[in-house]
């Protein structure tokens, strides 16, 4: 059994966890919530094990490197960070309804990695440009940031849902966390994400400077990460303005996550004069 098989199985574990979280939310069933937490937790452990195993496999193939070098590897790391950050939040705030929205994201990221025909799960040797310790720091920090933004995104969706239903008496939003909790969690996640995105951009710049002699080249990927950064910087300042609380902040958080997704996937479709990984 190799790491890719394990990770395919974990996809279904996350799927199961997502179903259980949704079930426990819709039917207010505490037991399935407890089970969901354990399933999610074992999914995250399996996900981590898959990553470590893949690392070992690359050494067995003779060109060992940390599994953070291509789309597949970044996606499996992404799903792990989403799951891990979510579990920390669940433990801290003792609320599982966020899980009904966050766990599908971990599922989707891993499902996309495992099932998309465009993404190869082959372990490839590193091309010269990627042979740098900065790669590891860069990818880990960026994806910690992205995962936090992903959770901020679902929390913002929940905020908008909740706000729309505020007046109603009954419904599945009955046990929904309150608006101020969601707003506060959004802020927490955005700060965490902004902190790590900034470190990610900085480590990327230092790496580019050591590999190509310039820390910033305005290539589409770099520029989009900066656009993302500007959007979240806007959000942080907007919070300090009176008229900007609540709904608008939630919208900004959603727009910011759109920029994250574009930085991650969309940039490949832009006309670029050069891209990462091309050098030499």
């Amino acid at each position: 059994m190799n790491s890719s098989n394990i990770l395919s199985v974990i996809t279904f574990v996350y799927g199961l966890a997502a179903a259980l979280y949704v079930f426990s939310w819709v039917f207010k069933n505490k037991l399935s919530g407890n089970v969901a937490t354990w399933v999610m937790f074992s999914g995250a452990c399996g996900n981590a094990a898959g990553i470590i195993l893949r690392w070992a496999e690359s050494y067995r193939l003779g060109y060992g490197h940390a599994p953070l070098s291509n789309m597949y590897e970044s996606l499996i790391f992404f799903s792990f960070t989403i799951a891990a950050i979510y579990l920390v939040i669940e433990r801290k705030y003792e609320d599982r309804i966020v899980g009904a929205f966050a766990s599908p994201l971990a599922f989707l990221a891993l499902a996309y990695a495992s099932l998309s025909p465009n993404i190869t799960d082959r372990i490839q040797p590193l091309i010269p440009a990627l042979k740098s310790n900065w790669l590891i720091a860069h990818v880990i920090t960026c994806f910690l940031g992205y995962a936090a933004f992903a959770i901020a995104f679902v929390v913002s969706l929940m905020f908008l849902l909740r706000q729309r239903q505020e007046s109603r008496e009954w419904g599945i939003l009955d046990h929904f966390p309150g608006l101020s909790f969601l707003d506060g969690l959004n802020q927490q996640m955005v700060m965490f994400g902004f902190f790590f995105l900034s470190i990610g951009i900085i480590t990327g710049a230092v790496w580019a400077n050591s590999a190509w002699g310039r820390y910033w080249g305005w290539d589409p990927k770099e520029t989009w990460s900066l656009i993302t950064w500007f959007v979240y910087a806007t959000l942080l300042h907007a919070r300090m303005q009176r008229g900007w609380h609540g709904k608008r902040i939630a919208y900004l958080s959603i727009v910011g996550f759109g920029a994250v997704i574009f930085t991650y996937f969309g940039v490949n479709y832009l006309p670029g004069l050069h891209s990462y990984g091309q050098s030499g």
């Binding site: 305005w218 589409p220 520029t223 989009w224 900066l226 656009i227 500007f230 959007v231 910087a233 806007t234 300042h237 920029a259 940039v267 832009l270 006309p271």
Partner: peptide, 13 residues
Amino acid sequence: LLSLAITSIIGTV
């Protein structure tokens, strides 16, 4: 900040 975010898109397209 918003204007920087929006105008920066041009150079990526």
